[in-house]
Simulated assay, not measured.
Amino acid sequence: MTAIGYHASHEQFSPSELLEFVELAEENGFDHALASDHFHPWSERQGESGFVWSWLGSAMERTSMTFGTVNAPGYRYHPAIIAQAAATLRESYPERFWLSIGSGQLLNEGITGTDWPVKDERNARLEESAGIMRRLWSGKEVTHHGRISVERAQLYSRPETSPPLIGAALSEETARWLGQCEWTDGMITIATPAREALENRVGAFRDGSPEGEVYLKVQLSYAEDEEAALEGAYDQWRTNCVPGPVTQELRTPAEYDELGDEISREQVAENVRVSADLDEHREWLAADRSMGADRLLLHNVNRGQRQFIEAFGEDVLPALSLE
């Protein structure tokens, strides 16, 4: 049975609000949560960006759900520190924390003044970071000199089992690479209305890792009527619909907003599943499940979180469990 989770968007809501939302999500039948790890929001309109590693302890104490976050080790975070943070959460809350890692965005990682490398180099740094974390979780003393430097590091507080390590992919090329990487337990990618592109990414990963788990972060916008659903998505998420690699050159929310002003509502609807029809959302999610997704993490990109959680908890999640 595909598990259903709630996405806690730290770019859009304060940490205290998100604690209320994950409690409400659990009350309404969500089993899992994904939390974003950002230093900046995607837009000035979103206006938040809490520190996820502080928040996760509070959220896991207040609920019984599993939690994960998508992190970019090797820039603003040293991988040894992320390994320690993940180990502490999983030891404190056994089997309930998983970690996804990706190559990151300049928007977040650029705050340290680092030179931002090309994608192939970022992937190489990501793989090196993953190896360091794996070794630390196994209890080994790690010394490593490469793209990342580690000197005689050893984790003394470790969980009984290491956190699952899930690679993040936005393209078919990255998905295929992840499927060939020994360090991955699975892949997380974005589910949008572009069904063929999504199937290609999942297929590319499965080609190399047929047993690896697939997590889908589902971008949707639900509201009481179609206009409100589209306007809510346009207001909050159009900066995430800027096409192409140009976003890798943007350092600030204001720069995203400048490009976002060129995005139309039609382009938003091509990137977000916009609908006021709960049956339509259920059908989309059922199709995701039929693709073999192990976990669906639902991100309602507009600001109506309570309405979304309660409506999906009452009408969508129960229907999916019966299919």
Rank of each mutant, 00 (worst) to 15 (best):
M133P: 12
E211K: 07
V274M: 02
E226L: 14
W137G: 07
H7S: 14
V52T: 14
C181T: 08
P318R: 13
A204N: 06
T143E: 09
S16H: 03
L18N: 05
M187Q: 11
S16E: 09
V22D: 03
G260R: 04
W183T: 06
P164C: 05
F39N: 15
G47N: 07
R122Y: 01
F67L: 06
Y75F: 10
A276L: 10
P193A: 01
R158E: 05
V268I: 15
R122K: 10
V142C: 13
P15M: 00
A83W: 09
E48K: 11
G104D: 10
R273H: 13
H144F: 01
F21K: 01
E255R: 07
Y93W: 05
P193Q: 00
W53K: 02
P79S: 09
S138D: 07
N71W: 00
E172Q: 14
D257K: 11
R195M: 06
A130W: 02
A286I: 07
D279N: 03
P210R: 02
H10Y: 15
D115R: 12
L220S: 04
A124Q: 12
G203C: 00
V52D: 04
R282W: 00
G139V: 08
H38C: 09
A286D: 15
A204G: 04
N200L: 06
P253E: 13
A168W: 02
F67H: 01
G104E: 12
Y215H: 12
A311K: 10
P318K: 12
R282H: 04
N271W: 05
R303N: 11
G74D: 04
P245D: 11
S54I: 10
V202L: 05
E173V: 11
L278T: 10
P193T: 03
A83Y: 12
D115A: 15
L24D: 10
S149Y: 01
D288L: 13
S157D: 08
Q236N: 08
N200A: 04
M1T: 14
I82R: 05
Q84T: 14
V52Q: 01
P210W: 00
G292M: 07
Q46E: 11
Q12L: 14
P210A: 06
G113N: 08
M187P: 07
I82P: 12
S36D: 12
R135I: 13
L24F: 02
G313I: 09
R303V: 07
S64W: 02
A72M: 03
W237R: 08
Y215Q: 09
D235P: 02
R147K: 10
E266D: 13
A85K: 03
V246L: 03
